[in-house]
Simulated assay, not measured.
Amino acid sequence: MTDLNSRYGMNPPHSEVINACQHVESCNVLDMGCSNGRNALYLSQLGFNVTAVDHNAGAIQNLQSIIAQENITNIDPRIYDINQARLDADYGFIVCTVTLMFLAPDRVEAVLADMRECTLPGGYNLIVCAMDTPAYPCPVRFPFTMKEGQLSTLYQGWEMIKSNEDLGTMHNGAQLQFATMLARKPAQPASV
């Protein structure tokens, strides 16, 4: 697999995306808050059909340029305000890594509800979000941070493939606690 990320001066794909791909087979995937496309490029090379959304038009244009240069046919980049919580398709896998903390705090639960609704039965959601806890106050002033247990509560009834609230380090070196979850939506019961 060609390392398109380093070729275009991007960070590597998020480690949790790499780990999740050990559980998730290629399918239609939504990369929410794709930024410059580091996860989208990785997923496309694994055979996923990627819809990559971000509100930043410049980031989407940059990703479109890479897609054109590399003749990539399985990434569909789109400008989209995630705060709207109005996805227009269903996906087998939705990736939302270090995105929620930049959203309007009063929209996050609606965004997560929309993600759950637009996940196909048996599909997966991957979420990584900064936390602000008494033990580890968040050193970065994000608009939104997760509280202890908040993410797993919102995904009750889903199979938890991975769920933790561990310390992590951001690209800038800041250390903080992250809520990390890979969850599988229950398959619909067979109709009689």
Rank of each mutant, 00 (worst) to 15 (best):
R184Y: 01
A135V: 09
F48Y: 04
M181A: 06
D31I: 15
V128L: 09
Y8L: 12
E16H: 02
L154M: 15
C21Q: 11
S191E: 09
S191L: 09
Q69F: 02
P134A: 11
M170Y: 14
H23G: 06
F142R: 08
R78M: 09
I79F: 05
I82V: 12
L112D: 08
E117H: 01
Y136V: 08
N83I: 00
V192C: 07
D106G: 01
D76W: 05
P134Q: 13
Y124I: 06
D81H: 10
I127M: 04
N36F: 03
G37S: 10
P139K: 10
Q84Y: 03
V111T: 07
V50Y: 00
V50W: 01
N11C: 12
S163G: 01
S65F: 01
N164W: 11
L4A: 11
S15Y: 03
L176P: 02
A183V: 11
N39H: 10
S191M: 00
L43F: 03
A174E: 03
P12D: 01
F144W: 12
Q188M: 05
N56V: 10
R141Q: 08
M101R: 00
A190M: 08
A57V: 03
R107D: 00
M115R: 12
E70D: 07
D81Q: 00
V50K: 02
G149Y: 05
G33R: 13
C138G: 00
V192M: 00
G58A: 14
H23A: 06
F178H: 13
T2M: 01
A130T: 10
M1A: 01
M170H: 10
N62L: 03
M10F: 08
Q69P: 07
A130M: 07
C21D: 08
L100S: 15
V108P: 03
P12L: 05
M131E: 01
W158D: 10
Y136I: 11
E109F: 05
H14E: 05
C27K: 14
M181I: 09
I127R: 02
R86C: 07
R78V: 03
M1P: 00
N5T: 15
T145E: 04
V98F: 07
V24C: 14
C21E: 09
P13W: 10
P105G: 04
N83F: 00
I82N: 15
V24S: 11
P121M: 02
G37T: 12
E109D: 12
P121D: 04
G173C: 02
L46Y: 00
L151F: 04
K185T: 05
A104T: 13
R7D: 09
S44F: 01
P189I: 13
L112R: 13
A52E: 05
L167K: 09
Q64G: 15
E25M: 15
Y42D: 12
G47Q: 12
F144D: 08
